[in-house]
Amino acid sequence: MPTTRLPSAAGCTLDDAGQDWDAVRVPRTVGASAVAILGSRCGAVVDDPLSKAVYFFTPVGTAARWDVAGTRALGQGAAVTIPPARRTEGHGPHWRVCPGDDGWITDPHALRAALEDSERAGWSA
Score class of each variant (00 low, 15 high):
T3Q: 15
T4R: 03
R5L: 15
R5E: 13
L6C: 06
L6P: 03
L6M: 09
P7C: 07
S8G: 13
A9T: 15
A10C: 08
G11N: 14
C12N: 15
G18Q: 12
Q19Y: 10
D20N: 07
W21Q: 12
D22F: 06
V26I: 02
V26P: 06
P27Q: 09
R28F: 05
T29E: 14
V30T: 14
V30Q: 13
G31C: 04
S33C: 15
A34M: 06
A34W: 09
R41W: 03
A44N: 09
V45M: 07
D47V: 06
P49W: 03
S51V: 04
A53G: 01
V54F: 02
V54A: 05
F56N: 00
F57L: 07
F57P: 05
F57Q: 04
T58D: 03
P59G: 01
G61S: 03
R65N: 14
D67G: 15
L74P: 02
L74G: 03
Q76S: 10
A79M: 01
T81P: 02
P83M: 05
P84D: 07
P84S: 08
P84K: 02
T88F: 00
E89P: 02
H91E: 12
G92K: 00
W95P: 00
V97M: 02
C98A: 12
D102R: 12
W104F: 11
W104A: 11
W104S: 08
I105Q: 11
T106S: 12
T106E: 02
D107W: 08
D107R: 09
H109C: 11
A110F: 15
L115Y: 12
E119A: 15
E119N: 14
R120H: 14
A121Y: 12
S124M: 07
A125F: 08
A125Q: 04
